[in-house]
Amino acid sequence: MHLTHDAALGINLLHANQEGADHNRAHFDEWGITCFNIMSSPGAGKTVLLEKTLATLSNTLKIAVIEGDMTTELDADRLRQYGVPVIAINTGRSCHLDSRMVAGGIHRLVHEYDPTQLDLVLVENVGNLVCPAEFEVGEHAKVALLSVTEGEDKPLKYPVMFREADCLLITKIDLAPYLDVDLNRIEANIRQINPDVTVIQVSAKTGQGLDQWFEWVRRQCH
């Protein structure tokens, strides 16, 4: 008899999470929903961007939000004012959303709303630059934000999220004149890592660049 002393696996460390993400995505596809995973370091402007997006696009697109927040419902409350379904997920000590948490959010969403009526689900991830990018949640596209106040070298130092992003928003560009920051330099640093990413410079405060962002969002929806 051959005694088995070791076993070859060759499976991804995040296999269980990936399966959950694929499952979520299959549901989205079945319902005709496009899903974005929106990521950035804390305070880069995700919630404000969502507010602007809901204010402009929720007439023409049926949007729901899944809001990951470590402790509070503050961000979710801000977004509920726009009259769209907002599911808040308390992530507790976890520093990012994973596919199981988002599955729970989807479950709660379809309990209250007919998912076939929705066009777009926006997932606001926990503010963290280190790596929500490794944990897929079932999204069709990853959107990363980098604010001008974070410095030009952030993409070089935290490259994984910037590599994985399909759309990169350089936010708070209204502040650029007050800082010693070169927007072209930021963009060049991002392109070194991810040559095909769509880069859009925006200011939620002045509205600059937002039309370009809305246009990108509309193009992704099937």
Partner: peptide, 27 residues
């Protein structure tokens, strides 16, 4: 620095470095 050191082309194909794999277990 991620661009090609010779021609400055951006980092396109990654051949190694993105692995997160459980290779095997020992009993």
């Amino acid at each position: 620095q991620y661009a090609c050191p010779d021609c400055r082309s951006p980092m396109d194909d990654i051949r190694s470095g993105r692995e997160l794999k459980i290779d095997r277990v020992e009993y």
